[in-house]
C-alpha cells in the first residue's frame, strides 16, 4: 500500500465520520442553562477531527506521485488474516449458539491449524492442544474462580 493512498483514504474516512458526527452532535438538545451543554465537546472534537482529516488528506495528496509502492502484501497473507477474523466472528456466534465448550474446542483447533506454518500443520496436534486447553480453561474459570461463561443451557 502506498503511503499517499493510505493517508488519502484514511483522511477521507475520518472527514466523512467527522461530518456525520458533527451533525449528530448539533442535534443533541441543549438542556443545561449554565456553562456548556452535552453537545459542546462533541462539536469541538468533531470539528478538530475534521480539520485533522483535511491535513492528512493534504499530506497524502502532496506525497502522491513521489512515494514508491511499499512491500506488497501477498494474497495468502490477506486470506490468513481474513480467515482468522472470520474464525473469531464464528467463535462469537458459536458461543451464543452452542456454548463455551464446543465453540472453544472448534475455534482453537481451527485457529491453531490455520496459524501453523504449512510444514508444521497437524490436525492431531491442534486437536490435542485444543482439548487440553478448553477443559483446563473451563475448569479453572468455572470451578476455581466461579465465573459464568457463555452457555446455552446444554453446555
Amino acid at each position: 500500500m502506498r503511503a499517499a493512498f493510505r493517508d488519502i483514504a484514511s483522511g477521507l474516512f475520518l472527514l466523512l465520520l467527522a461530518i456525520v458526527l458533527y451533525l449528530t452532535a448539533r442535534a443533541i438538545p441543549a438542556r443545561f442553562p449554565i456553562g456548556v451543554d452535552s453537545g459542546f465537546l462533541p462539536e469541538v472534537v468533531t470539528t478538530a477531527l475534521g480539520g485533522l482529516a483535511a491535513i492528512i488528506i493534504y499530506q497524502g495528496v502532496r506525497r502522491s506521485g513521489k512515494d514508491r509502492p511499499e512491500e506488497d502484501t501477498n494474497a495468502p497473507v490477506s486470506s490468513r488474516v481474513g480467515f482468522t477474523l472470520a474464525l473469531i466472528l464464528g467463535y462469537c456466534a458459536g458461543l451464543s449458539l452452542v456454548g463455551f465448550l464446543p465453540a472453544t474446542l472448534v475455534f482453537l483447533t481451527l485457529q491453531i491449524y490455520l496459524l501453523s506454518p504449512n510444514a508444521e500443520r497437524s490436525w492431531k496436534m491442534a486437536g490435542a492442544i485444543s482439548v487440553i486447553t478448553t477443559i483446563s480453561v473451563y475448569a479453572l474459570f468455572t470451578f476455581a474462580f466461579g465465573l459464568v461463561l457463555p452457555s446455552t443451557g446444554i453446555w
Binding site: C92, L95, F107, L108, Q111, P117, E120, F141, V148, L149
Partner: peptide, 19 residues
C-alpha cells in the same frame, strides 16, 4: 510456537470481556 499461544490469548480475551 506462537501459533499455539495466540489462539489461547484470544479465548482469554473473550472470557475477560464476557465476564
Amino acid at each position: 510456537p506462537r501459533q499455539y499461544l495466540l489462539p489461547i490469548v484470544m479465548v482469554m480475551c473473550v472470557i475477560g470481556s464476557f465476564a
